[in-house]
Design a protein around this nucleic acid. Structure first.
Lengths: 250, 250
DNA sequence: CGTCCTATTGAAGCTTCTCAACGACAGTGG
DNA sequence: CCACTGTCGTTGAGAAGCTTCAATAGGACG
């Protein structure tokens, strides 16, 4: 899996940083200066184990982080132990975006897998990177709205399909899909806590989807047989990614 | 209800603008200049009937509006007619906040009641008003996260209590509660579409809450008997309003 | 007084949950 | 090398929560 690192010695290999770079580039065209900022930031990347807390509800917000590898999630635990994942961060996502107005975190952010993060470099006003951050933040909100609809008005089968389609769509932007398949590091229990279901019911619905020939799911890898047909069936509408430049650009 | 308007002739009465002013002041202390901006903006307020579309999913975002009176909501309609309200806007809330990065609306915003809105005046950087907007936007996200938890992990009874507590809390900031009671213009059907339930079940749960002495609800007005006890029972945690000034303030 | 919308109630059914048990698998220590 | 342990996926049976369909009642309005 490791490839000889060329040119300047990086603290992380090219393989690690590539997905995040692809993802950010997909949101807005990055300039040479942006790439330089990103490469510099990635020099000080850090690895965190699963369950590591990046942010804690009610605690001060740390500097924003750029997720390079692995998954993280916003989570809320109720006093009686019920758990709800509110959104997931995938490679290329920014954790703890610059909500300067709200100095305390509105949610706990936890690593779902082993993760590699680096500081999210401050973007010069009007730069492609600033635009990428802004679009990323807007997309974040759009997916959150989608999650509300999913929980409120989709049944178990539809929620699973919708979730997998969303992940597929987002991982595609980072180039992390291979022939329509992608890595799914979540256990069925985590999935249940994201979809507002029980692990048992998630399991049954997955198996039904398997029997229906809708998907394959084995050892942490998912293959959607016909994403477009599935999306049409459940009436899924993806957030529109807009790369149109707006505001005071250089 | 109408009181003689004093001093400069306004297009709306003081009664109309007071709640929004109270609400914004509660988020950040407004300066004289901010108040002048707001008063000027309110000169051109407009009244819209129920069902009026302020924003339409996928259409360009119009100038941000300040909601003075009435309720609005972000809504998504599925192809088969299922409907989900994702969040509500109450007096003092900003509709279509300045997501410059995403020039197209990520949701449709519709008037739930007759509403009065005015343009949201642009806030000078570092002003109290800018801070109020920013906090409002952060709160908006916090409530949205709360909605996800509500839909994912609360049962019908808890969802209704949680929803009413949230509305009570938010209306309090605008001074729109009287002795623990407040106006609830939503029909049970609308409530069902916000809580991911059917109108019939919402009705049953409300009546159970009535029998349990938890609330009174008659002719569009709700009285919560013991909000704090209810909040404790369902483990509700309110977003923290932070008025702490951050960033480049004048 | 008729119409429409909203609230209310009953009965039956379906989706999802709960409880419980078992199998597959990886890691660990003897 | 093999029990031991823990996690995760799988399955069954019964119960609970919520929905669906249908019908009635109450109010607002023309």
């Amino acid at each position: 899996m490791t490839r000889p690192v060329t040119a300047p010695p990086l603290s992380v290999s090219d393989d690690v940083i590539a997905p995040a770079l692809r993802r950010l580039s997909a949101l807005s065209s990055l300039e040479a200066a942006d790439l330089a900022l990103l490469h510099a930031a990635m020099e000080v990347s850090q690895t965190h184990p699963p369950r590591h807390n990046f942010l804690t509800l009610g605690r001060p917000i740390a500097a924003p982080l750029l997720l390079l590898q692995g998954w993280a999630a916003r989570v809320r635990i109720l006093p009686d132990g019920r758990r709800q994942f509110m959104s997931f961060y995938l490679p290329g996502d920014v954790i703890g975006a610059t909500h300067q107005a709200m100095p305390i975190a509105s949610a706990t952010v936890i690593a779902m897998t082993e993760t590699i993060v680096c500081p999210a470099p401050a973007a010069p006003a009007g730069s492609g990177l600033a635009q990428a951050y802004a679009v990323a933040e807007a997309l974040d909100e759009a997916y959150l709205l989608g999650h509300v609809v999913q929980l409120g008005r989709l049944n178990a089968q539809e929620r699973i399909s919708d979730f997998l389609l969303e992940i597929y769509e987002r991982l595609s932007l980072a180039g992390l899909t291979v022939g329509g398949s992608f890595e799914m590091p979540l256990t069925q229990e985590m999935l249940a806590d994201a979809l507002g279901l029980t692990p048992v019911h998630v399991n049954r619905m997955i198996q039904q989807a398997r029997r229906d020939g809708e998907l394959m799911w084995k050892s942490g890898r998912v293959l959607l047989r016909d994403p477009e047909r599935t999306a049409r069936t459940i009436g899924r509408q993806s957030p529109q990614v807009t790369t149109q430049r707006v505001g005071a650009s250089g």
